[in-house]
Structure formats: structure tokens, C-alpha cells
């Protein structure tokens, strides 16, 4: 489905059009479920999250009109933010952290970077200008929902150092992206 098609559907959902909601779900739920699965890492939580996300989409559809983002980015942002909220609210967080330290770091998939095009190429180029561990911290945070706490443990630095690192990396990243 084209971005225009999805925009149209979201606008119709804002007008409480349930048939449009069905079509929107059919054409976008696989992508959003992929987001939930990647961030939450287990199916049952991802399924619960996906339900909450489409309830939010139904309720917030009227807000889409005032954003200047692409419709799929808008939907993915809702899914990502919700999944990260769920992740942060998990109790106890420690079990999660211990598990995360044990598993190998997600490295950027070289094949995926190679096929990425246009805008993706740009952000990857800018990320590549950072030191590799800092770039992977930024990617890990965005794609896997990793917290400062977890990143600090993984990189074996104090929390504040991690935060300083990341903020400085974000600063460089922004300079590159807005160049």
C-alpha cells in the first residue's frame, strides 16, 4: 500500500470508519508486530502490545493530520514507544538486565546496511562516523529498546559515563545529519 493510501486510511479511521480500520490493520499489523517482537523479545507480550497499539491508533488517529511525518513512521513510532514503555515498566528489571548481559550484542547486519537505501543510507553513514561501540549503542537503543542501565552494564562503564557518551554521540550525529 502506498503512503498516500495509508494516510487516507488513517484519516478515515479518525472519522470512526471501521472498514478503514480493518484495512489499515491488514496492511500495517505485520510491520508493527515486527517492531513489538524485536523490542519485547517474546510473542505473548508482543501480542498484548499490538492490541494496545491498535486501540491507541483508533483513539489517536485524529492527531495524525497535524504531524508532518509519513504515515508508516507515525504508526511505527506509536508501536515503538508503546513497546519501550512496556519494557521499562517490566518488573523485576534486574532479571531482564542479567539476561541481556549474557547474550551477544546485536551487531548491525552488514547485509541489511548494504541493501538499505536513500534516507537509511544517510543515517547509517552518519552513524558510521561515530566510534563503532557508540554507533552500536545508538542502534541498539533504537532498534532493541535498550536502556541506559543496560548499555552501561554491557559497555562496562558507570551510568553517567554512558549517558555522557551517548549524548556526545547524538550531538555528532545531529551535526552530520543536518549538514
Amino acid at each position: 500500500m502506498t503512503p498516500e493510501g495509508i494516510s487516507e486510511l488513517i484519516s478515515r479511521v479518525a472519522l470512526r470508519d471501521r472498514a478503514a480500520f480493518d484495512v489499515l490493520y491488514n496492511s500495517t499489523s505485520a510491520k508493527l508486530f515486527g517492531v513489538c517482537l524485536r523490542i519485547l523479545g517474546n510473542r505473548s507480550e508482543a501480542e498484548d502490545a499490538l492490541q494496545d497499539i491498535y486501540v491507541k491508533i483508533w483513539n489517536k488517529a485524529d492527531r495524525f493530520a497535524v504531524t508532518d511525518t509519513s504515515p508508516i513512521s507515525w504508526l511505527v513510532a506509536i508501536a515503538r514507544n508503546h513497546s519501550i514503555d512496556v519494557l521499562r515498566a517490566r518488573k523485576p528489571a534486574t532479571a531482564e538486565l542479567e539476561k541481556a548481559v549474557g547474550i551477544a550484542e546485536h551487531s548491525p547486519d552488514p547485509e541489511q546496511s548494504a541493501i538499505a537505501s536513500g534516507e537509511t543510507k544517510r543515517i547509517n553513514e552518519c552513524l558510521d562516523q561515530l566510534e563503532s561501540d557508540r554507533a552500536s549503542a545508538v542502534r541498539g537503543a533504537y532498534l532493541n529498546g535498550e536502556s541506559y542501565e543496560l548499555l552501561a552494564i554491557r559497555h562496562r562503564v558507570p551510568l553517567n559515563t554512558m549517558r555522557t557518551w551517548l549524548r556526545r554521540s547524538l550531538m555528532k550525529l545531529k551535526e552530520c545529519l543536518e549538514r
Binding site: R38, T69, S73, V76, A77, Q112, T120, L177
Partner: peptide, 15 residues
């Protein structure tokens, strides 16, 4: 907006 392009890396999975 800066990070949106990374969304391409989320792989679709049928719910």
C-alpha cells in the same frame, strides 16, 4: 524524523 529511516530494519511478521 532523523531516526525514522532505521525503521526499515524492523522485519514484518504476520500477527
Amino acid at each position: 524524523l532523523h531516526f525514522d529511516p532505521l525503521n526499515e530494519q524492523f522485519q514484518s511478521t504476520t500477527a
